[in-house]
């Protein structure tokens, strides 16, 4: 059975949510801090994953230069550099991309739940 109390809670919920939204839109101290936090989190995530790629792929030319013997290792008759450059980078990039999409969406979800949280 629905009671009047339940209706009041919903109204309070909406008003509270609107307040955070207004904070955001009008760049009040709270709103500004919130959005800066999100931008920082997303940028940190992007930079961390870019670093993974920079080390993972960017390390290869250095590896080949420092240890030329790597080139003579073969996998199923194919020299290792051909595998490392011709095949391996694509799954690697896709996995990094997949991780990014998941974590970036989680950051946004966290942000949304703060903004839409019924009570502060």
């Amino acid at each position: 059975m629905t009671s009047p109390t339940r209706v009041r809670v919903v109204l309070a919920h909406v008003r509270q949510r609107d307040r955070t939204r207004v904070d955001l839109a009008e760049q009040t101290g709270v709103g500004d801090a919130l959005i800066r936090g999100l931008v920082r989190a997303q940028l940190a995530l992007a930079l961390r994953l870019a670093l993974v790629v920079a080390v993972g792929l960017g390390g290869l030319p250095l590896l080949f230069a420092v240890a030329p013997a790597v080139g003579h290792v073969t996998i199923a008759g194919v020299n290792l550099p051909w595998v490392l450059l011709g095949v391996a980078p694509y799954p690697f990039l896709i996995v990094v991309g997949w991780v990014y999409v998941r974590l970036a969406e989680r950051n946004e979800h966290d942000f949304t739940s703060v903004v839409q949280r019924p009570e502060r």
Binding site: L24, A25, Q42, H109, T112
Partner: peptide
Amino acid sequence: VGATMLRLHAPDALRY
């Protein structure tokens, strides 16, 4: 710039 940053980064569900 503040409003632009909000629009660029706020999750789509909030619709800024």
